[in-house]
């Protein structure tokens, strides 16, 4: 049979659909896992931050201002080593001026207003390529004395996500590589009777052989073609006979 087959179309359709479904499942799984890790990451850094805030608030209980909490800078530096994704810890006063910072050159700068917690509730933000948790530092009469800003990266998460993506992509592609050729084969096998039917029809219409089946439509068609052929043959014979007769007298 020349030209494309309807089976090709169905094969393409199924291929597209399978690839789409696999992509969708992969993407959904990936996003799900990413969210799981992001939540866990955030929880972890909140733990670190809350512990630091606790220490600062206790420090102020001694009766000093936030700026004078003893050993504050070394406290930040120590906490900084707790996780590799921790990128920066900043302590700012109530006006947003940086008092302590793991990047010491920033001390005295103004902290980004988008990171500072509003009132005494935490703020989560994404800023400058880092995730930030802004936690209020509250003094002994319930006022926000300053804020602790903790910025962390996603490198650790990215590694895990890449690993998960690769772990899904490998078997996924393998499954497609095995499944799709099998599907194509099966489609063409299943399509054979239908294609045979079309082939018989085409052959029949082209005036070829008799249909192999006793299917009513094919038989009817065959009979009609023969009948019409015969009718036309008959008419042609008659007309030729008429034409072949000698010319009439009056001609």
């Amino acid at each position: 049979m020349t030209g494309s087959s309807f089976a090709t179309r169905i094969g393409l359709l199924l291929t597209a659909l399978t690839v789409l479904a696999c992509t969708l499942v992969t993407a959904l799984n990936y996003l799900k896992f990413e969210r799981l890790l992001l939540i866990q990451h955030q929880r972890m850094f909140t733990t670190i931050g809350a512990d630091l805030v606790d220490t600062f608030e206790r420090g102020m209980n001694i009766g000093v201002r936030l700026a004078d909490v003893p050993g504050a800078q070394s406290l930040l530096d120590r906490a900084f080593g707790r996780d590799v994704d921790l990128q920066r810890i900043t302590v700012a006063d109530a006006g947003g001026r940086v008092l302590f910072d793991t990047e010491r050159v920033r001390i005295g700068d103004a902290a980004a207003p988008a990171l500072l917690p509003a009132g005494t509730t935490r703020r989560l933000a994404r800023f400058g390529g880092l995730d930030w948790i802004g936690m209020p530092v509250v003094n002994s009469f319930g006022q926000r004395e300053g804020s602790l800003l903790l910025g962390y990266g996603r490198a650790g998460i990215a590694d895990r996500l890449t690993a998960v993506a690769l772990a899904m992509a490998g078997p996924g592609l393998t499954a497609l590589a095995i499944g799709l050729p099998l599907a194509w084969l099966a489609i063409f096998l299943v399509a054979r009777p239908t294609r045979a039917l079309f082939a018989q029809l085409a052959g029949l219409l082209a005036g070829g052989g008799a249909p192999a089946t006793e299917e009513a439509m094919l038989q009817g068609l065959r009979e009609a073609i023969h009948r019409h052929g015969a009718t036309l043959d008959d008419a042609e014979r008659q007309l030729e006979a008429i034409a072949a007769r000698a010319p009439e007298r009056n001609a």
Binding site: G170, P171, L180
Partner: peptide
């Protein structure tokens, strides 16, 4: 085909 491939991806 859908069942096979999607389940394979998900198991992975």
């Amino acid at each position: 085909v859908l069942l096979g491939t999607v389940v394979a991806v998900s198991f992975a």
